[in-house]
C-alpha cells in the first residue's frame, strides 16, 4: 500500500512570490485548522471554568481564573447513576482491559501472520481471504451468539471475556499487518534458518519477531487506540465491574439528573481522550503508519 510512505516524499516546487492564490490557500488552511481545533479548545477552557462562569459567560472566552477543581471532581467523585467514584474507576478498568488485550492480540496475530506468510500451508490464502472479508461485517451480527457462547462457557461478562473478544476482533488486522511484513522480508533468511535446523517457534521467536520491531510498534499503537476507544464491546462483554472508561464517560455525562456540570463533563471527556491524544502527538509518523496499515484492510 502506497499509504505506508505517507508524506515521506518532499513536495515538488515552491512558488517564487506570495500571490493572491497563496493568500487564499493560507486562509483556507487557517479556517479549516480552526474548525478542527475548536472542539478541543472549547473542552479545555470549559473544563477550567467554574459553573457560574459557564452559565453567564462565553463559550469561547478564556477562563477568568483557571481552576482544576472540575478535573479533580471528574477524576474522584463524578457520578454514574448511583455511585460517585469519578472516572478513575473507568480509567483503571480500561487499563486492565488494555494491557492483556494488546499483548495477547499481537502475539496471536503475529503468529498467525507468520504461519500464513512463510510456511506454505494448504488453504492459507482461503483462510486469509475469509478473515479479510469478516473484517467488514458489523459487530451486531456476532454479538448475541457470542454473549451466549461466553455465558455457556461460564466466563459470562468478565475481564477474560473482554480480552478474548478484543483478541478475536483484532485478529484480522493484526494478521494482515504481520503477514504482509513477514512476506516482505528476504525469504533466504527463513530458508537459512530452516537449513540450520531451527523449528517453527524458534524461527518465530528468535528471528522473525526481533526483526518485526517496527511492525510491533505500529501494532501496539493501532491496538492501544482501538481498544481504548472501544465502546460497544466493553459495554456488552466487560460486565458491570469492568466497564471501560468510554462507557463510564457516557454514563457520567448522559445520565445526569438536573443541571449538568459542564466543566466536570468536559474534564472527564478530556481525561478519556488523553491516552489516545498522548499516543498520537507522541508517536508522530508512527500513528499515520498505523492508520495506513489498518487502512489496508479497507
Amino acid at each position: 500500500m502506497s499509504a505506508i510512505t505517507l508524506g515521506a516524499v518532499r513536495p515538488r516546487f515552491r512558488p517564487r512570490r506570495i500571490s493572491p492564490a497563496r493568500w487564499g490557500l493560507y486562509a483556507f488552511i487557517l479556517i479549516t485548522a480552526l474548525y478542527f481545533l475548536l472542539p478541543l479548545y472549547v473542552m479545555i477552557v470549559t473544563s477550567l471554568k467554574p459553573m457560574a462562569e459557564i452559565r453567564q459567560g462565553h463559550l469561547l472566552a478564556l477562563p477568568a481564573s483557571p481552576s482544576l477543581a472540575a478535573w479533580v471532581k471528574a477524576w474522584t467523585s463524578a457520578c454514574t447513576g448511583l455511585t460517585c467514584e469519578g472516572i478513575r474507576t473507568g480509567f483503571f478498568n480500561s487499563l486492565r482491559i488494555l494491557l492483556p488485550s494488546v499483548v495477547i492480540s499481537i502475539v496471536v496475530g503475529s503468529l498467525t501472520g507468520y504461519a500464513l506468510s512463510l510456511w506454505r500451508v494448504r488453504g492459507a490464502n482461503i483462510l486469509f481471504g475469509a478473515m479479510m472479508i469478516v473484517a467488514f461485517i458489523p459487530y451486531q451480527v456476532f454479538i448475541y451468539p457470542l454473549v451466549r457462547v461466553f455465558s455457556f462457557t461460564g466466563l459470562g461478562q468478565s475481564l477474560a471475556t473482554i480480552v478474548t473478544i478484543h483478541t478475536i476482533f483484532g485478529l484480522p488486522t493484526m494478521t494482515l499487518l504481520f503477514r504482509n511484513y513477514f512476506a516482505s522480508l528476504p525469504v533466504e533468511l527463513f530458508k537459512a534458518a530452516r537449513i540450520d535446523g531451527a523449528g517453527f517457534y524458534q524461527i518465530y521467536a528468535r528471528i522473525m519477531m526481533p526483526m518485526a520491531t517496527p511492525m510491533i510498534v505500529v501494532a501496539v499503537i493501532l491496538q492501544t487506540t482501538g481498544i481504548w476507544n472501544d465502546f460497544i464491546l466493553g459495554l456488552v462483554f466487560a460486565g458491570r465491574d469492568n466497564l471501560p472508561m468510554t462507557v463510564q464517560l457516557n454514563n457520567i455525562v448522559n445520565s445526569t439528573q438536573g443541571e449538568r456540570a459542564y466543566n466536570v463533563d468536559m474534564a472527564a471527556t478530556l481525561l478519556t481522550a488523553l491516552l489516545p491524544l498522548v499516543i498520537y502527538f507522541g508517536s508522530g509518523r508512527w500513528f499515520v503508519r498505523g492508520i495506513a496499515a489498518g487502512a489496508v484492510k479497507g
Binding site: L37, P39, T225, T246, F287
Partner: peptide, 26 residues
C-alpha cells in the same frame, strides 16, 4: 506542514463517544 497535518488528523485518534459528547455541547 507537519503541524497542520497533526491538527487535521488528531480527531481521528479520539473515540466516537468523545466526539459525540464534544459536538453535543457545541
Amino acid at each position: 506542514e507537519d503541524t497542520i497535518r497533526s491538527i487535521y488528523l488528531y480527531p481521528y485518534s479520539m473515540s466516537f463517544v468523545v466526539t459525540g459528547l464534544v459536538w453535543q455541547w457545541l
